[in-house]
Amino acid sequence: MKRPDSLRDPDLQLADLLVHEAAHAVVAWELGIEILHVRFDLDEWSGRMPFIGAMNKFVGDLSGENAQTDAETDMMIFHAGHVAQRWFNYAGSHGHSRIDLWGLMRTCQWVDRDIPLIDAWSEYIEERTRVFVQRRTTWTRILALAAELPRHGVMSGAAVSAFLSGVRIPTTQPEPRLRRNPPPIPPETSTPRAATAGLLGRAVTDVLELSTRARHSLAGARITTIAELLLHSAWDLRWRVGGLGDKTLAEILEETRRHGLRLPEERWIDRQRRVRSARQAEPVYA
């Protein structure tokens, strides 16, 4: 196999092109768009992935939100090739395919004619596609199809679909992003709101067993009740309250935890933890 002399970019590798076409196909397949075929010519080092985009079948108001959604689907497919190429070959992007660029521009112009808007829109969809392509599942499928493509030369839409359905995705780590039906976040169990609610109006000194320094520091910052204390993050207490150092902060945090109370960022961390555990309980790709 010889590299054609007609190629303009001297750095372009065969793998770039294969990943490019495979990414178009995989993103189209994952978004439920009909692929006509994927063609790759080893002699010419050229590829094509014609598809029937959502905008090709769109009927209705072109300035409406449905048109925007359909256009974004097509734009993601057009962007996928170049984005995957860049992700695969981290050092450079090796030029843009003009076919993809014109496809993007035409898709956008169905919906809007304002050029600065189209630029910003295209940039946003490119970033969204990057996030989509970098998902472990999508990227595994892209690499698998890129390896398969040279064996066939031309793969029909049905063949691509059958091949991608058979790609095994390791399920060691569940996918944290872009889930279609995320499981509901379980309610707080460690600290029922009812239990803490009674403490909110009470004085800090009555509820928490604190050292003299801690009591004086909180009083100096006009933090008298538990509710007022829970409005401050640990950072606020450490850096905004006078005379309150690391040891005193640790003491306050320990006391609050002992009573099942949590400062704002701890509540956020706890929520994140619950979300993560809920997602891990249910693998997406079995």
Binding site: P116, L117, E123, Y124, E126, E127, R128
Partner: peptide
């Protein structure tokens, strides 16, 4: 960032 930029343009 890109999303915010796009929504401002919109």
């Amino acid at each position: 960032s890109a999303w915010i930029q796009y929504l401002h343009e919109r």
